[in-house]
Design a binder for these strands. Structure first.
Lengths: 154, 154
DNA sequence: CCCAATTAGTTAGTTTGCTAATGAATAATC
DNA sequence: GATTATTCATTAGCAAACTAACTAATTGGG
């Protein structure tokens, strides 16, 4: 009963998500959108004008990473930065018209990929999958905290 | 019935895998192993002395990417390159003693994370998950081929 | 009120992924 | 057998993620 990474479920899952990423990448490139940007565009559509720190938190990325992403997207005209009136440390990020256009396309791409990914899946199967994923996430998060935050010993 | 990425299953799955990566990263750093290297180490353990092209294919990475990874791992002493005798274009990659040591630790880390990730899962649930993941992968691969390889129109 | 602490964002340097272009060695063809 | 084509690997340049160290602005305490 030796552990072999080749047969590990997380390995299969990585593989699936890599394939997913490749699909996204291939289908968005024609809209001048890069692989890391779709999620950011989606968040901005839901909530335009967020401050960078909050935006970074929501897309699950460090502020330093976001700075660089925003620089690139500002250069290519998808978003723009505007300083906050009352607090000059803060800069808020807004979609441009071009950004809103691109977002529509990207959203459609994501929808189509999702549809194809789960083609042949029943609603019950999707519910089961969601449940399993949630449990995996809880388990992994608990394990992470347990490792990083030393036990506040009894 | 609008599509929203926040509620998409693939979004949840990305999230789970990101958490998984964070766990791996945190637990291997003490062995001087970087995030991309575990899978490479595992493959080399199974099959030492592969040529770079084949190794790249197996870990799902482009040859150019592998070149850079091997450079770093050779520098840190985990692997070594040896030229093939009969074909001077080819270079084969071997684990060093240090590499074998590191691999043992990494394998244990991956095993423990896997164990924790699926703690509370029954064997049936794991089987179900594997089945769902396989179907997702087939679907995504088919969709990718369909998009990239233009239909050899009837 | 002024200096210290906190907070937001940026910059620099690293790893990992990619593509495209190049170099070197082998295989195939005329 | 010399030239062409193919194959393996590398290099260069870009995107995306990180950490650590920094700057600049605001807030708080003495």
């Amino acid at each position: 009963m030796e552990f072999s990474y080749s047969t590990a479920l997380t390995h299969s899952a990585s593989h699936v998500m890599k394939m997913h990423r490749q699909n996204v990448e291939f289908l968005i490139q024609k809209y001048d959108v890069y692989p890391g940007q779709p999620i950011l565009l989606m968040r901005l559509t839901e909530n335009d004008g967020m401050i960078q720190k909050e935006l970074a938190r929501r897309i699950g990325v460090k502020p330093a990473t976001l700075t660089v992403m925003i620089n690139r997207m500002a250069k290519s005209g998808l978003v723009e930065r505007r300083a906050d009136e009352r607090d000059q440390r803060i800069s808020r990020v807004y979609l441009t018209d071009k950004g809103r256009q691109a977002t529509k396309h990207v959203k459609e791409v994501l929808r189509v990929i999702e549809e194809n990914c789960f083609s042949g899946f029943s609603d019950e199967e999707k519910d089961v999958l969601r449940g399993l994923l949630d449990r995996m996430h809880s388990n992994l998060q608990a394990f992470y905290l347990q490792n990083t935050q030393p036990t506040s010993d009894l």
